[in-house]
Nucleic acid binder design. Structure first.
Length: 552
RNA sequence: GCGCCCGUGGCUCAAUGGAUAGAGCGUUUGACUACGGAUCAAAAGGUUGGGGGUUCGAAUCCCUUCGGGCGCGCCA
């Protein structure tokens, strides 16, 4: 019996009790079935009595006792204790506890998938770095987190599009091109120009064949070629990193197709646009922004914000119910104004969602390195992959909440790559695979017994076995919670927990017998548990875009 | 000045308002002539920045204060 089944059962009892007592039950989201911290508390615990005691107008302990009486009828439950202020600690019957292994082995890669987000149509926009330089470490965090989050939401039934907004319109492109020219001729860089090795590379690569052309021609040719080259480099880096976008959306297309004008016109019709100082403004302050924002400058040029407005409208017109923006902490000021845009179009705050990622600090010689494109000391995605590899890089960036700044110590990560927890998890998987292989070599029939579900799993009674079983049973609920809160790091943390439980199990018990003649029911059951663990490790790693090697 | 985010063992990070705040690294001590030692077992290490409040119960919510980061353009 898995926790979600138990939870449904408890809710059912709750409804019956409420009806009997004529209580108009208020739904409480805090109701939960959890794995207790300590093993002696049982397999699962619930807080149902604690949070509903008030509504029933009895003490939590009394309500708990009522639940105990009802629940003991359930044939899957062995025992229930009331503990502490009113927790129900539930111990399952043997078969009920081990049934999760059968479920996993039956559903394989589909175990953990759900449809609870089936009505969601989500646009995930992330990275969206300007094509004026390689992807830096901040963008890298989103490349890992956004991609994995997309996988997760997809697995829970949502329709998901991963999208990259390509800023190919505006002054930064001019700066970029001028920087390359300046670099080539050794002239002074403009004030906010770009510098760095990659600018020199671009100059060396593109300039020689253009040298004899007119100034204007050099500029135009360079603009096309440099942006194209940079963009294909970015795409290549992302691909190497295992991040594949469904759509690369060009900012320029919003202008070419007149969508900016159209989007602003609609807002004008809705009465949220006004003219002041010969510029066009949007009344974002009406929806909680600090001040109104300019859409069109007095020069007649559109602002970057105007494109953002059109882009949001475009996303909604394409049918996305939820538009997710993943931004760096330095862009948190956008939240209010974009929320205002959504509301100005008559949408709600539900339609627009923000994930704000803290900085990734690069530590060298115990000090934070200040990175900037201008100074040319950026650490790129390619650098990171070269130093630590895709798996370790992705995992390091995923395993922390985006709300937490990450300090990546280059010295440490280079010297002790094996200490990245990703290897701990991968090693657990490799161990599982090795056991499977050995089992097959030992006795083909043994593997087949597991495969054909002839294993008696109820013999899994040791503490380390039960611990592993409940952790496996938690997998679907963990995925759902992770998807609900858009917190992919929960999946990584779960993996570490699962790997730990497996390593403990592995080293305290024999899974396979020494010789063929000694094969017993325990061995068959443990092999099934081993195989189920392998399946979950693989499923979860694949969500994170991290490989599951059969040997290391 | 105003606003947003973050303060958790020496370090890097966890913890839907739940039970004794958990892992990894580092430190110390143990464990293979049996499934791979990239592992396991164990020890030391905490007033969750400080102070109030809310309640059965707070690292978590509210107020306040102190640190750190970031943002406050007719830039993109």
């Amino acid at each position: 019996m898995q926790p979600e089944e138990l939870l449904a059962y408890i809710k059912n009892i709750l409804l019956v009790l409420a009806k009997q007592n004529n209580i108009d039950l208020k739904n409480n989201k805090k109701l939960a079935v959890e794995k207790p911290k300590l093993e002696i508390y049982g397999d699962w615990s619930t807080n149902v009595a604690l949070i509903y005691a008030k509504q029933f107008n009895v003490s939590a302990k009394n309500l708990a006792d009522i639940f105990v009486k009802k629940m003991l009828d359930n044939e899957k439950i062995e025992k229930i204790d009331v503990a502490g202020p009113g927790f129900l600690n539930i111990i399952l019957k043997r078969q009920a506890r081990s049934s999760v292994v059968e479920n996993i082995l039956r559903e394989k890669q589909n175990f953990g998938k759900s449809q609870f987000l089936k009505n969601e149509n989500i646009n995930l926009e992330f990275v969206s770095a300007n094509p004026t330089g390689p992807i830096h470490i901040g963008g890298t965090r989103w490349a890992a987190v956004g991609d994995s989050l997309g996988n997760l939401l997809l697995s829970q039934g949502a329709k998901v599009i991963k999208e990259y907004y390509f800023n190919d319109h505006g002054a930064q492109i001019d700066n970029f091109v001028n920087s390359i020219i300046a670099k080539y001729y050794g002239t002074a860089l403009q004030e906010d120009g770009y510098d760095g090795e990659y600018i020199k590379d671009l100059a060396d690569k593109l300039m020689p064949e253009l040298e004899n052309r007119s100034k204007n021609e050099i500029y135009e040719q360079l603009k096309t070629k440099a942006v194209k080259l940079m963009f294909s480099q970015i795409k290549q880096s992302l691909q190497t990193f295992g991040t594949n976008f469904d759509i690369f959306f060009h900012e320029n297309s919003l202008y070419k197709t007149g969508q900016v004008v159209k989007a602003v016109n609609e807002l004008t019709a809705r009465g949220f646009v006004y003219q002041k100082d010969s510029a066009l403004w949007l009344k974002t302050s009406e929806f909680g922004d600090d001040k109104d924002r300019v859409l069109q400058k007095s020069t007649g040029e559109w602002t970057y914000f105007a494109a953002d407005v059109a882009y949001y409208k475009n996303k909604r017109d394409r049918g996305f119910k939820t538009c997710v923006y993943m931004l760096g902490i330095d862009h948190h000021g956008y939240i209010k104004r974009l929320q205002a845009v959504a509301q100005a179009y008559g949408d709600t705050k539900e339609n627009i969602k923000f994930l704000i990622g803290q900085f990734v600090n690069i530590i060298k010689d115990k000090k934070i390195i200040k990175l900037s494109k201008r100074a040319g000391n950026i650490i790129t995605l390619d650098d990171l992959i070269k130093v630590v590899g895709v798996d370790a890089a992705r995992y390091s960036l995923i395993r922390s909440s985006v709300n937490t700044p990450i300090d990546l110590d280059l010295d440490l990560i280079t010297l002790h790559t094996n200490e990245n927890p990703v290897y701990y998890v991968q090693y657990a998987y490799a161990r599982c695979c090795n056991v499977m292989k050995n089992a097959y070599m030992l006795d083909k029939a043994l593997s087949e017994k597991v495969l054909t579900k002839k294993a008696d799993l109820s013999v899994l009674q040791k503490t380390v076995e039960k611990d592993l079983l409940t952790t496996l049973a938690l997998y679907p609920a963990m995925l759902e919670a992770s998807a609900r809160s858009y917190e992919i790091h929960k999946v990584a943390r779960y993996l570490e927990d699962l790997a730990r439980k497996y390593h403990t199990f592995y080293s305290s018990l024999r899974i396979l017998p020494n010789t063929k003649s000694e094969i017993q029911v325990e061995h068959i059951a443990r092999l099934a548990l081993n195989n189920a663990t392998a399946q979950i490790l693989k499923n979860a790693l694949s969500l994170l875009g991290v490989s599951a090697p059969e040997r290391m």
